[in-house]
């Protein structure tokens, strides 16, 4: 078995790379896939917090690289889903502790045992980024509908295209606020797709539930009622090759909106 290695990257910080990683990973594992997540954000790790696994980390990726433990010992198993594992980053070291070759090697080893290897990339385009993309053959570029994030995503896509063994990359637009888009105060999904001219894998609506889920260490996909949770679930299904239509973000705005939509036909529909 050869698993898919997908890097989740963005260029700009704070657009939701780690949240995306935790949620897609959890959703894939819930569908019965074997998933391992690698946190490559050495020195500023967060993925363990989002998954609520901070207190279980004994060995990190640096311990693996420096041969203080075997790769399998360093994998932290999720509390609820035994198919989900985390390879944590070291908090007391910096990006230079791991090289591109070493990460490539780790990805190749994990590919044999897992269906999906999700690599959480640090912000920026320096060594940390280079390490994270080294072993990956697919990428998900996370962006928000803001000019600065879109500009950085464009730069990242350029770097990904220049990389020989990168087979495909897809766009995930995070923190979309339909009401602002409607009043022309926010770039629409179509605008972003047009600027970046790339294929879309998901649209995630802004959701206050993300804040509580991050603080609790419980990915939001476990909450079936949350709109962001549903959207992440759909992203995971698209990654697995299913054809899932994009969610109608206007859906929950009430009866009046639904009636209006029924008559006007096209309000709030993307792609």
């Amino acid at each position: 078995m050869t698993g898919r290695v997908i890097v989740i990257t963005s260029g700009k910080g704070g657009v939701g790379k780690t949240t995306t990683n935790a949620n897609i990973g959890t959703a894939l594992a819930k569908s019965g896939k074997k998933v391992v997540m690698i946190d490559t954000d050495l020195g500023l790790r967060n993925l363990d917090l989002l998954l609520g696994l901070e207190n279980r980390i004994v060995y990190t990726i640096v311990d693996v690289v420096e041969e203080r433990c075997k790769l399998k010992q360093a994998l932290v198993k999720d509390k609820k889903n035994p198919h989900l594992c985390l390879l944590a980053a070291a908090q007391t070291r910096d990006k230079s502790a791991v090289t591109e070759e070493q990460l490539k090697d780790i990805c190749e080893q994990l590919q044999k045992d897992f269906d999906y290897v999700l690599v959480d990339c640090p912000a920026g385009i320096e060594q940390g980024f280079q390490n994270a993309v080294a072993g990956a053959s697919e990428a998900i570029v996370v962006t928000t509908p803001e000019m600065s994030a879109v500009r950085d995503a464009d730069r990242i896509i350029g770097l990904l295209e220049a990389k020989e063994d990168m087979k495909s990359y897809k766009l995930l637009i995070n923190r979309v606020r339909p009401s602002l888009v409607k009043s022309n105060d926010m770039m629409s999904v179509d605008d972003v797709v047009e600027i970046l001219s790339s294929e879309l894998v998901g649209i995630i609506p802004e959701d206050t539930g993300i804040i509580t889920s991050t603080n609790k260490g419980e990915p939001i996909v476990n909450d079936e009622k949350s709109p962001a949770g549903k959207a992440y679930q759909n992203v995971a299904r698209r990654i697995m090759g299913e054809d899932v239509p994009f969610m109608d973000l206007e859906e929950d705005t009430g009866v009046v909106a639904k009636v209006k939509k029924f008559f006007s036909g096209l309000v709030g529909k993307e792609k």
Binding site: L49, G52, N55, K79, N215, G217
Partner: peptide
Amino acid sequence: VFARRPDSANIPY
């Protein structure tokens, strides 16, 4: 010997 914080107390904020 090794111990970890119980998950019930695992609310970092």
